[in-house]
Write a protein that binds this DNA or RNA. Sequence first.
DNA 1: GCTTGACCCTGTAGTTGCTACAGGGTGCAT
DNA 2: ATGCACCCTGTAGCAACTACAGGGTCAAGC
Lengths: 144, 144
Amino acid sequence: MKIGELSRATGTNVETIRYYERIGLLPAPERTASNYRSYGEAHRTRLAFVRHSRELGFTIEEVRSLLDLADHPERECSEADRIATRHLAQVAEKIDQLVALRDELSRIIGRCRGGLAADCHVIEALGNHTLCGNEHKSVHSMSC
Amino acid sequence: MKIGELSRATGTNVETIRYYERIGLLPAPERTASNYRSYGEAHRTRLAFVRHSRELGFTIEEVRSLLDLADHPERECSEADRIATRHLAQVAEKIDQLVALRDELSRIIGRCRGGLAADCHVIEALGNHTLCGNEHKSVHSMSC
DNA sequence: GCTTGACCCTGTAGTTGCTACAGGGTGCAT
DNA sequence: ATGCACCCTGTAGCAACTACAGGGTCAAGC
């Protein structure tokens, strides 16, 4: 099948498929006489694996490692477990951060009574860290 | 004060300060005879506002809007409230997504019994979407 | 055969928010 | 004078895509 078919079959943007090929996540497929990419079932299966892993928040490099393991069934499973477990810990950490952030934002917004920006509690709170209920940290520690 | 001092005073990378100036979040400061940037208290205050807002997960453009409101105290407060409320909704949505993801990852990992990759449940689950307990969606809907 | 529109190709640049140089200048203590 | 910390501008890179620009291919319809 051609790239458009693969795109629809896996819910992946055509340009993303070419990107994955460029960075080595997908092997270069055969080409037609007109230089169109021609994919088979193995490509569709591999791309589905990649998309699923990405949806679960694994980074490209983590996906690469997982694919490598899948390509070598004689390897130990512990590496996949380690990758997944570390990712789970990061997700849990991120949740904690977002919950703290949600609580802080709720407090800030809850005290907004409308009116002029001069009396705006949102603006005031952003300008004065000491008004925060609890110490919050930056929330940019992971991408998902 | 010079840029290094401002950096330490606000916990902001020197290069990030220059970046903020370049994108207009901070006004260009006065310069010394040797072309060094020279900042006053107003810059320190403004940068603290920016960092605080960023820590709370507001995008640069949202910060820009909030700064504009703070610069115009005669404006209505509702815009700041709208920005903050929308952000709060996004945070809540993100939390929901991450909780679903955490649960799914826990299920996948919990069934891992070690051994060879050939029998790896992590790898198997990534390759087969139907093994997921619930429908999960991609977790990349916001940056923080 | 010609036209048209969907699809395909490669190469390049852009998104967001920084971050890290390269190469050169300044200030101050030794 | 030297050395080191700091400063400057300009450019490129990071992650993971995404969006062109410019050109080629295919197939249906006329």
